[in-house]
């Protein structure tokens, strides 16, 4: 299928942009940015309806990156989608930059919510979806959560609320890469079995390989067709995906890449 091939190439381009943005000899949130590369790609270049020239368009679909530390992946997708010039990516985390270390809607049009303090994105999506219901708008809300982030209690408060209000316009995506900043989640603070948890909270659950473009597309379509309540896509991913020395290594959650590693990564991502 041609579209899948195009999206696969786009995901590669997005990964390269993440490296270019953070740069060699710099510390950055590589691991979780790489693990959401396909999720970002499918959302920005296939699934979501929006206009980069008019980021405030009424009734648009919205992405809330609740795991705000993966901002490099979102910035890369936004630059490739035309929200701002690609050259601006190199301003990441520089003083006065629109590309803050974590997303800030006041500085960068197209960012829908301020995230970075974990556990808060789903609550904001609940508020947005309630507002749109009152306003009779038809936008959809995609919230990307980290699996480590699920340790935050507020996520479950919001999960309860989304089901309580029957907010079928919300699709949560759990980037289930099994690692948090300091090690494997199952060893640091085990979040346990995810499917049954979300189901018990009243959500429709779909599990996919989070690096499979067709599986993601299928899951988002199924979520759209479910009018009973919110859907969560548990996306099984690999932290640091696409760069051999980073894959499933916790320290690249927010790690340093030297010149040689940078060159190696760029070569692997060609």
């Amino acid at each position: 299928m041609q579209i899948e091939e195009k999206l696969r190439e786009k995901a590669k381009e997005l990964r390269r942009a993440i490296f270019m943005m953070i740069g060699a000899n710099c510390v950055g949130h590589f691991g979780g940015s790489l693990s959401v590369a396909e999720i970002m790609t499918v959302l920005y270049f296939h699934q979501m309806k929006y206009d980069p020239q008019n980021p405030g368009l009424k009734g648009r679909d919205r992405l809330i990156l609740s795991k705000g530390h993966s901002a490099p992946a979102q910035y890369a997708a936004m630059a490739l989608a035309g929200f701002f010039p690609r050259e601006e990516l190199s301003s990441l985390k520089k003083l006065g930059s629109r590309l803050q270390g974590h997303p800030n809607l006041l500085s960068l049009p197209g960012i829908e919510a301020n995230t970075g303090s974990l556990g808060q994105g789903l609550s904001m999506a609940v508020g947005m979806a309630l507002a749109e219901r009152l306003q009779k708008e038809k936008g959809r809300f995609y919230v990307i959560l980290g699996d480590g982030e699920l340790q935050e209690g507020q996520v479950w408060e919001a999960a309860m609320a989304a089901a309580n209000f029957g907010l079928h316009t919300i699709t949560a995506i759990v980037d289930h890469n099994k690692l948090q900043a300091t090690g494997p989640i199952c060893q640091r603070m085990n979040i346990g079995e995810l499917r049954s948890k979300w189901e018990a909270f009243g959500w429709h659950v779909i599990e996919v390989n989070g690096h499979s473009i067709p599986e993601l597309i299928q899951a988002f379509n199924a979520a759209e067709q479910n009018l009973k309540g919110p859907t969560v896509v548990i996306a099984h991913t690999v932290k640091g995906k696409g760069v051999s020395f980073m894959e499933s290594v916790a320290k690249y959650h927010n790690g340093l890449v030297d010149e040689n590693q940078f060159q190696q990564a760029m070569a692997e991502l060609q």
Binding site: G119, A125, G127, A131, Q154, A158, M160, A161, N164
Partner: peptide, 27 residues
């Protein structure tokens, strides 16, 4: 229609209010 009972969850309530405000409501 203009009232939302959020349950005993103040943190979630503040986040939901942010979302409502982001969509033009005055919570």
């Amino acid at each position: 229609r203009q009232f939302f009972e959020i349950g005993i969850a103040e943190q979630n309530m503040v986040g939901i209010a942010a979302g409502l405000a982001l969509n033009g409501m005055k919570p």
